[in-house]
Design a protein around this nucleic acid. Sequence first.
DNA 1: CCTTATGTTCAATGTTTATTGAACTATTGA
DNA 2: TCAATAGTTCAATAAACATTGAACATAAGG
Lengths: 123, 123
Amino acid sequence: MSRTPLHPTREQIELPMVLDCLSDPIRLAIVYQLAQQERVSSELRCGDFSGLGAKSNLAYHFAKLRECGLMQTRVAGTNRFMRLRREDLEARFPGLLDAVIKSAAKDAERLQLLAGCEVVEAD
Amino acid sequence: MSRTPLHPTREQIELPMVLDCLSDPIRLAIVYQLAQQERVSSELRCGDFSGLGAKSNLAYHFAKLRECGLMQTRVAGTNRFMRLRREDLEARFPGLLDAVIKSAAKDAERLQLLAGCEVVEAD
DNA sequence: CCTTATGTTCAATGTTTATTGAACTATTGA
DNA sequence: TCAATAGTTCAATAAACATTGAACATAAGG
């Protein structure tokens, strides 16, 4: 397995790529779940999203989320911890991420955003 | 030419479709141009976007923008007038459209948003 | 009428996309 | 050292997408 993957710099983050990333229901669910969890911890493992699909498909979506600058991946042992790049996104596109997450929250059931993912309390 | 095309009701507007629509550079440019023009007039003709591509390709993008609920089309003679469905979008996804348009404005040159479209003063 | 202007629709093309299962890599812990 | 765990990568597939030009429909103006 390669080392920690490449991420775009803040300046390299592009609006169309970000919007396209967020337009996929699975990726939107990943981002939403990360945002929900933020009050508890800013990071989640890949495995915490297993309710959203098969491992290899999730890896594909994780890669897209990384490439467009929405997420950071940190390697720790056999785990990868993901977090939203809130500050970078806020710097590039003020208010955008929040607006999307709030919009998603409004439609949470319609979007089946929480399919199979109980939000776990940190210990 | 068929009569005024179908538009989704406010409640039928879906977040992923809206984001996907806005993720295409040409459609983003159309929305941006409509938003810029709003201070002068809330409507633009299809032909006003001819700087963005070939007619048939634009018609394709117009259809997408209509189907996802971002635009309204009004038929008047041989012209079609388009306007942003601001109120419906604000009701469904508060703050989202503004955040996207502001983000686009920030990157206007990078996105080549105004390619071939001088904003015309109303008379 | 006939012509012109405005858009849409259609068919064809090539590209990108999401999804799957299998193979692979790397790390942990027994 | 061996097995189990966590993720990624690859190849294959089917579906969706953007783009083009030609054909079409409709309305306006001479």
